[in-house]
């Protein structure tokens, strides 16, 4: 049953990778920041699920949009109801590959390039970003930062609040992966 559900979630990985090549965490941190002279909007979720296949250098992220916490309850309400339309599009996800060579046996931090498809608000967009990966036998740590525009994901920003929301929103990701145990 577990294998079936995991396979459904990470299909592309489980069809191609041995379990020993898979690293997983369900507690990855995703933080986004929209900073303007008028207002800083910061939100964070500690509940992103991510899987890394070190054989194929494949990376997948998924997060529930209602799990983001804001400083104010009103911001959270607007984010979920007006912008992300969470009842309609409850998840955001990333499917991609590490395109740089990685020495997974080294335990030194390495800067790598990641390419893939980011999907949120029901819209997909190709993204490229830098990540820092520190391989290890019992855990792999990864951090990355990318910038996205609401327009790329068809997220409408009313003109009345255009000055309060940054043209480019910064997304930061921190994950500590553990080997997937069957």
């Amino acid at each position: 049953m577990n294998k079936f559900i995991l396979l459904a979630f990470f299909s592309c990985l489980f069809f191609t990778a041995g379990a020993q090549a898979l690293f997983i965490t369900k507690d990855a941190k995703i933080n986004f920041n929209s900073s303007t002279p008028v207002e800083d909007i910061v939100a964070e979720s500690n509940q992103a699920t991510t899987v890394l296949d070190i054989e194929k250098n494949v990376l997948k992220f998924s997060v529930l949009t209602t799990s983001f916490k804001f400083r104010r309850a009103l911001m959270e309400e607007h984010f979920n109801e007006n912008y992300m339309e969470s009842p309609k599009f409850p998840k955001a996800s990333f499917n991609g590959k590490i395109v740089s060579a990685v020495d997974w046996k080294s335990e030194k931090p390495a800067s790598v390039d990641v390419q893939g498809t980011l999907t949120m608000h029901g819209t997909s967009s190709e993204v490229t970003f830098k990540a820092t990966i520190t391989p290890g036998k019992s855990k792999i740590t990864a951090s990355a930062e990318l910038k996205v525009t609401p327009e790329a994901f068809n997220i409408p920003i009313p003109s009345a609040v255009r000055d309060k929301i940054a043209k480019e929103v910064t997304i930061k990701i921190d994950a500590v992966y553990a080997p997937y145990q069957q």
């Binding site: 559900i5 369900k26 509940q47 529930l64 209602t66 799990s67 409850p90 998840k91």
Partner: peptide, 13 residues
């Protein structure tokens, strides 16, 4: 708690 949907698991926050 408040159900926030399903990834691999069903999350209640």
């Amino acid at each position: 708690g408040r159900c926030s949907g399903m990834l691999m698991d069903i999350q209640v926050i």
